[in-house]
Nucleic acid binder design. Structure first.
Lengths: 347, 347
DNA sequence: TTGTATGCGTTATCAC
DNA sequence: GTGATAACGCATACAA
């Protein structure tokens, strides 16, 4: 049944430890935060007292006095987009064993919601902040610039970061996908895009640019929607693409779930992949390689982005301005699989 | 380049607002937290002063004085398991517009890690706590019981909750999957399980029990691993299952990605689904319905679990002991699709 | 309904 | 290298 809310008996404080170790409170505080400033003797005495009493600092008091918490704010545009799972995982890995906690905010791909979240998160005096992309509102940008904590912008690469950044060039990634399809001999490439945040859009731009340069572009074969990406949507957009150009012979999809949707719909319609239709997916989550046929994809280093981001952030928190490379390009990788024709055996 | 860490000029405090409104500090505090205790006059005066000065309470000071933060701790066994995406999303939806922040801890399916996280989260004096399942260590259980905040255990149903709980009966869900396969006429059902946390195991137990009752069970057809679930693993486990019993005619997979892996491997081997092989998946993420053939699955209300959990928690935070139904069974739903034979047209 | 006095547990500052 | 003192900004308890 309902539990009784027990008011736990008083926890030991810094003063208790100080008394136990026959030192002043501030010495205890120092032994914890910067032991190198404390003599060996005191240190061991304090450490014993801490262990004996089972002392643990009170984060609230610490935050009040120092004006910084141990929280790291993380702003993500979506929690259900699998793309961010791996980023999140990388970030959490990097946090393990540290004293920092992650506080996630879901901006739902809205710059305004992001702005509001940045404001309320900043009020909490986080030790650091990670935000997604470069598309902050002017006000949000100003707040982040003025923030007293380090900031990392993730997922994207190219623009001048507010403070630090790690990601890759989405336009180049889209371009690379197109180049691959063209090299495979496809001549009527189409392109599916969902959500259409700034990064998505740049992938499409890159794809379009490459196709134009090759003289094979037709804007009708660009099918987009503001709906959020899903397998069902992939099927749907592919149907739309077919209705616009029945002879489309290759598809670049902006996201893995779209790509899988295309494959499924192609199977339903008995369109042979990769012979009659080439498919190049984006992100390359675990699943894509196990599809039948396996999907060619632009693989993005999502876990690495998370890891780099948290590392930069923690380094910078530990020692301000110590991070030298403040903008990291993680790159991406095109992985050819069975959903596009091999160069060795063109049709 | 590197930003300058500006030390923002002093923010207005409660006292500033009080001075501006010609009232005492505590009146300001009250207008914010329990306006009904303040006279109309004072209230408007205070509210104006707040707006004029752009005052926002300092969470750290509030936490120190009141011994409670606005953080809600959430312990999840995995961040990359898509199952928890929807739970998370439901929780965040329920938090929107409130003053609460979610702090996620990743237990990596380890009770010991969970115990450590519970301890360190509790130290932060959260307003509430959400943990996954009923399998806490004795110590963790004790800490949660003694905690001064409400606690919700999610995902599971059946046991006596520490405080509150919301989820479904996993054994019954596994049982239902078996019943369905049997009703479809399959007679050599197998079962794939990854990860094998307590809930996974109970699903398998339920499945096995139903098959036993029908007299069609062979333990060789239970293929499990402690590895974490993935599509690749699904293919692999299915291969193993085939090697143990070539004539297996149906598979229940513990997780959608396993189920998709089975389907993909079946396609590779040209095993007709659902004629020669029935597949019943678990959880029913968006993708399963779009596979070709679409996958029959036990659908679990993950988003609802998140929503219920946060609602119970917030209600209980607002008014202790106000939540009457402290244990909620969300149920589950078997959705028949094309990967199992229809009853109308048995083979 | 409103206000006063005091404490929350830590850290910054400056002196020793 | 160590310590005394004074914040930090708000909420509790109690009084008026």
């Amino acid at each position: 049944m309902a539990k009784r809310r027990s008011s736990s008996s008083r926890r030991p404080t810094l003063v208790d430890v100080a008394r136990e170790a026959n030192v002043s409170a501030i010495t205890v505080s120092r032994t914890i935060r910067s032991p190198e400033l404390v003599s060996q003797q005191m240190r061991t005495a304090v450490e014993e007292a801490i262990k004996k009493l089972g002392y643990h600092p009170d984060p609230a008091a610490s935050a009040l006095a120092s004006k910084v918490t141990n929280n790291i704010a993380l702003l993500l545009p979506s929690l259900t987009n699998t793309v961010f799972e791996d980023v999140l995982d990388g970030i959490y890995e990097g946090c393990e064993g540290t004293r920092y906690f992650i506080q996630i905010g879901d901006t739902r791909y809205s710059s305004l919601k992001e702005e509001a979240l940045i404001e309320s998160f900043l009020r909490q005096k986080p030790a650091g902040m990670i935000v997604t992309g470069f598309e902050q509102t002017e006000k949000a940008h100003a707040m982040l610039s003025a923030a007293s904590c380090p900031v990392v912008q993730i997922m994207d690469y190219g623009e001048e970061p507010i403070d630090m950044a790690v990601g890759f060039d989405h336009e180049a990634a889209g371009y690379a996908a197109a180049v691959h399809l063209l090299e495979c001999g496809y001549r009527r490439p189409g392109c599916l895009g969902a959500r259409l945040d700034a990064r998505s859009r740049r992938r499409l731009d890159g794809f379009r640019a490459a196709c134009r340069e090759a003289g094979v572009w037709d804007e009708r074969r660009m099918v987009t929607t503001s709906q959020s990406s899903s397998v069902g949507l992939g099927r749907h957009l592919f149907e739309e693409l077919l209705s616009r150009d029945e002879e489309v012979d290759a598809v670049f999809s902006n996201n893995d779930d779209l790509g899988i949707g295309v494959l499924m719909e192609a199977q339903r319609r008995m369109i042979p992949v990769p012979e009659r239709l080439g498919i190049c997916s984006f992100h390359d989550m675990e699943m894509t390689q196990h599809m039948f046929p396996s999907l060619t994809a632009v693989a993005t280093p999502r876990n690495d982005i998370g890891k780099f981001a948290i590392k930069m952030l923690l380094d910078e928190i530990a020692e301000p301005q110590s991070v030298k490379q403040r903008s990291i390009d993680t790159g991406f990788k095109l992985i050819q699989r069975s959903s596009t024709r091999s160069l060795d055996r063109p049709e």
